[in-house]
Design a protein around this nucleic acid. Structure first.
Lengths: 183, 183
DNA sequence: ACAGCCATGTAACTCGTTACATGATTAC
DNA sequence: GTAATCATGTAACGAGTTACATGGCTGT
């Protein structure tokens, strides 16, 4: 049956397992609050084409197009839940892929001025702080439903993971910056 | 002129700035030892097509095809160096993109059995150790040329960054695993 | 002789993006 | 009335992958 979907499809499908029904537009917003930090938030246009594909395979279903309402809401189907469950159980997760333009540029730092390398790292530190703030807000919004057994338990764990990651990145980048400025 | 190349092109071009001339095959090996950890190591076929494009724009040049030798070596041109330098100085690096299948699956951990979530994290910890070992070997191979001002200075900094990142990931994943097993 | 590595490339394909087009509803 | 937000899609394109095809050279 629906074998071999791209991971992003499962990701979007997974965002529909939190008990509500979403329009493509809303799904994109949820992706921006979650997937963005550990995966990628697909473009609007892709959200719609993924929803079309998932609907075709009956993993999601459009919910009664509320008469006068122009927006189509989608819910995950039983088949969709099963598919997700099988995917989680039977396919290996694989190792993260990191596309780190700052590390990449540092690798060839010798072709730039030392001042430019330092600026690269400082800019990164600034941006890290902004991203951390965004994620911290998301994490705060999950408070209340994050106890063991509750709905936002896992999203909260992931958010904490992300925050710890940003903190670690900042620490490392600061240390590298020190070493660059020494040399 | 050669404006607007994908970052991967600059990455490969950058690997040719370490004073030697490489065949496509060797370039791929170098990518496997460097880019793999912070970017992506392109497929063999892409290495060749990128080299063709870089050659077309005269950012690299095939070095005299050594008579009886069947392999084509490439060196970076002066124009190539200039292009890289400008790229480093004038285009913003952008924020890293992380595709983290473990975090993604944890996000929707409620659709799986708790035991499967725990296994997910344990497998990740195992794989982290292997990757760390690979990177540690690479880092060791740079010893000797990693003092300030020397050829492998920056590659060594990046390798240290990577090692610290792996260590941090392991620490966080272990803590999340604890919390998952508690709940 | 045979395996394994070195070496180069083409073809088909998928994922995902940007640009574009359209229009309804809501808030001021 | 007009700007922002909600809402949905199409078309063209680019980056990057896998599968395939080919063949020389090296060590045993």
């Amino acid at each position: 049956m629906g074998q071999g979907l791209p991971v992003t499809s499962y990701a979007l499908l997974g965002l529909l397992t939190f008990g509500d029904e979403l329009t493509g537009y809303e799904l994109k917003q949820r992706a921006d609050n979650t997937l963005r930090f550990y995966w990628t938030s697909p473009a609007m246009s892709q959200v719609y084409s993924e929803l079309a594909r998932l609907a075709e395979q009956e993993l999601v279903a459009p919910v009664s197009e509320d008469a006068n309402r122009r927006a189509t809401r989608y819910r995950i189907t039983q088949k969709g839940r099963q598919e997700l469950h099988t995917w989680m159980r039977e396919t290996p997760a694989g190792f993260p892929v990191l596309k780190h333009p700052v590390a990449l540029r540092l690798l060839i730092g010798h072709v730039a001025e030392p001042a430019d390398v330092a600026r690269l790292l400082r800019d990164y530190l600034d941006e890290l702080e902004l991203q951390r703030k965004d994620l911290a807000e998301v994490r705060e919004s999950l408070r209340g439903g994050d106890a063991p057994g509750e709905a936002f338990r896992y999203p909260s764990l992931v958010a904490d993971w992300g925050l710890a990651y940003y903190d670690s990145e900042a620490t490392i980048a600061r240390e590298i910056l020190d070493r660059v400025e020494d040399g």
